[in-house]
Amino acid sequence: MLALGYAPSILPGGSALSNHPRSISGFVVCGTRGPRPRFPRVWKTRKRIGTISKSQKLVECIKELSNVKEEVYGALDSFIAWELEFPLIVVKKALKRLETEKEWKRIIQVIKWMFSKGQGKTMGSYYTLLNALAEDGRLEEVEELWMKIFSENLESLPRVFFVKMISIYYNKGMHEKMFEVFADMEELGVRPDVSIVRMLGDVFQKLGMLDKYDKLKNKYPPPTWEYRYIKGKRVRIRVNQLQGSNVEARTSSENME
């Protein structure tokens, strides 16, 4: 029987080529054409600007400006001109960065500009504005803002606002104002924390009101437990243990010095 087939191609040297490609040192050899070149893959990427970089640009945009209201507001308006929505997260992060740098005037300007746009009117923003006004020494504006917040949120005002106002009056030596804020706290049923009791106790001792000092200590005794967050978990710790650890830390630091 006659069998038909294709004869392998023969090179001048007499060697036959196989029909299958061979692999030599990582390269694929295709017939007589040699190794196939490998080109690096170039992926098309679009650089996206996140909220952190935007907040940094916002801070750099207004940091070197003067304190003229129109100039600062114009720079902020031009910064958000092409935004489809108000960049509230970017502004909040910029305020946090300005707060760490203690740029109180810029914080006041940015928050008032944000309020003029009808955005970000939250308790956190009001507290940041109240703190910035107090740090900048604008006591009249602090009291005006406090009365506005207190009248609008009479039954839902957080305790941190009372703590802030009492600490402001305590540092300024305005004892009558302290007593008024504390009376409002007791009337609304807001329990004072340890810092408020300590500041009021110091004022009562300075003024010689020992009977009121004793009543304050009896009504609001120091707590036996305190809550701390350790690795994201809320842990209850005795106050005596915390005080003992603080004393040990102080003595060790003094010995090292």
Results as ranks from 00 to 15, higher is better:
residue 13 G to W: 00
residue 15 S to A: 09
residue 18 S to F: 05
residue 19 N to G: 00
residue 21 P to M: 05
residue 22 R to A: 10
residue 29 V to W: 10
residue 33 R to N: 04
residue 35 P to C: 06
residue 38 R to Y: 09
residue 41 R to L: 13
residue 45 T to F: 15
residue 47 K to D: 08
residue 48 R to N: 05
residue 48 R to I: 09
residue 48 R to K: 14
residue 56 Q to E: 13
residue 56 Q to H: 14
residue 62 I to E: 04
residue 66 S to Q: 08
residue 73 Y to G: 01
residue 75 A to P: 05
residue 78 S to G: 06
residue 82 W to T: 09
residue 91 V to S: 04
residue 94 A to M: 08
residue 95 L to N: 04
residue 99 E to Y: 15
residue 109 Q to L: 11
residue 112 K to Y: 07
residue 116 S to L: 12
residue 119 Q to M: 14
residue 123 M to D: 05
residue 127 Y to C: 03
residue 130 L to P: 02
residue 135 E to G: 03
residue 153 N to F: 15
residue 154 L to Q: 14
residue 158 P to W: 09
residue 159 R to W: 01
residue 160 V to D: 04
residue 161 F to L: 08
residue 162 F to V: 01
residue 163 V to L: 09
residue 172 K to S: 02
residue 175 H to K: 12
residue 177 K to L: 13
residue 180 E to N: 04
residue 181 V to P: 03
residue 182 F to T: 10
residue 187 E to R: 10
residue 193 D to G: 02
residue 193 D to V: 01
residue 197 V to R: 02
residue 199 M to D: 02
residue 204 F to E: 03
residue 212 K to H: 14
residue 213 Y to E: 06
residue 214 D to P: 00
residue 214 D to L: 11
residue 223 P to K: 04
residue 226 E to C: 00
residue 227 Y to N: 07
residue 233 K to H: 06
residue 235 V to A: 06
residue 249 A to S: 03
residue 251 T to P: 00
residue 253 S to E: 14
